[in-house]
Nucleic acid binder design. Sequence first.
DNA 1: AATATTGTTCAGCA
DNA 2: GTGCTGAACAATAT
Length: 263
Amino acid sequence: MPELPDVESFRRYFDKHALKRKVVNVEIIEAGVLGGISSAEFEDRVKGCTFKSSGRHGKYLFGFMDKGGIVVFHFGMTGSLEYSGKGGEPPAYTRLLLVFPKGDSLAYSDPRKLGRIYWTGTTEEFISGKRLGPDALSPGLEPDEFRKILSGRKGGVKSVLMDQHVIAGIGNVYSDEILFQALIHPEKRIPELDNKSLKRLFITMKKVLNESSDRHASSGKFPGHYLIPLRKKDRKCPRCGTRLQHGTYGGRSSWFCPGCQKR
DNA sequence: AATATTGTTCAGCA
DNA sequence: GTGCTGAACAATAT
C-alpha cells in the first residue's frame, strides 16, 4: 500500500518524532529487514548519531544522520512507522526499533516483511543504484521532461506509470486513481496518447499525489470524486454513474470506469 | 480448511 | 534494452 503519498506522510511523521533525536539504541528484531548491510554494521553506524533531516524519492524515505550517511526506509506493502512514548509498547510486527534518550522510540513495523531498510552514503548513489526515475513530485519534473521520459515507451500507460525506473512513486492504487481522473483507459498504449492527453495525465498526476499527501495530515478522507474508496464490487462512477469495472492490467488488480475511460 | 488476494521488486523469458 | 509473467514475502478474507 505505501506509495508516494503514504511515504510522504511517513516522512512528515518521521520529522515530527525522530528529527533532532539522538539514537541511543538500535534493536534489530528481524535481521532480514536490513538490505545490503549486516546488523553489527548498521548498529555501529546509527547508534549514537542524530537524525538531522529527512528526504524522500519515490517510495523511499531518507533519514540523514549528523555524522554522515543516510538510513533509507522502504515500506514494501505493509510497512509503517510508529512512535511510542516512554514505557509504551512498540506495535506488533516491529522489525527494527530506534530508541531515543528519554526511552521513547520509533518502530519500523512490517507484518509481511516485504520492506527493507538500507544504508547509503548519498541519495544520488542510492537512486542511481536502484535505477529510479525522477520523483513524481519533484519540482524539476515539468511537462516537457515528462513527455520526454514517456516517449519511446510502447507499453500500456498503467504499466509505465507504475515502472519505478520511469517515474518513481506511483503504485497500483494511485496509477488507477490518476488514470481515472485523467479519463484514460489503463491499457491505452503510450504512443496512442496525443499531446493533450499527455498534458492532462501530467497535471492530474501532480494534483492527485499532492492532494493525497496532504490528506493524511488533515481529515484522512479522500474527496468525494476519488476512485480509491470505491475499489470494491458494485460501486458506481461518481461522475457518470456507470458501474466500475475490475480487471488485471499491468499485472495488477485494477479498477476503472468503462464509461469515462475509453479504450 | 484450502485458496485467493494483496503491492512491490526482481528473475526469467521471448 | 523492453515488455510481459510469475515467484517471493506473511497475514487475512472467503
